[in-house]
């Protein structure tokens, strides 16, 4: 069961993001912060219509896109975990957009 929208407390602080797979712990947190109802995705929506957030890209396509995007990372240390993660996310985002 996945969330259809972000869940926030009364001050607007994010408690769980859209697309999060709900667990008993989430429900405890929601109750603690006074959230009585949340919108969830239908089974069909969970399979792929959740805004593209979970779309799958093959490892090969991802690696090819990462190699293409490395040009923009020329001034940074790609051995640094922060930039490794950014390159992975950038490649994923680009691959999904190109799809």
């Amino acid at each position: 069961m996945k969330l259809a929208v972000d869940v926030r407390d009364r001050t607007g602080r994010l408690l769980a993001s859209q697309g999060t797979l709900l667990t008993a712990q989430h429900l405890t947190v929601f109750r603690t912060w006074g959230i009585k109802t949340v919108d969830i995705l239908d089974a069909g929506e969970e399979d792929g219509a959740d805004g593209g957030a979970q779309r799958s890209v093959s490892e090969e396509d991802l690696a090819a896109m990462a190699r293409k995007m490395e040009v923009f990372f020329r001034l940074v240390d790609l051995e640094h975990p922060f930039f490794k993660e950014l390159l992975r996310l950038a490649a994923y985002r680009q691959a999904v957009n190109d799809d």
Binding site: F72, F73, L86, L87, Q94
Partner: peptide
């Protein structure tokens, strides 16, 4: 700023993604 540059939120004037300042992360 760096996350924004890397994930192409609009276009900063930097062609290359800016390096991290020392110990920033």
């Amino acid at each position: 700023d760096i996350i924004c540059q890397a994930l192409v939120f609009g276009e900063s004037s930097e062609f290359y993604i800016s390096p991290l300042d020392e110990q920033a992360y």
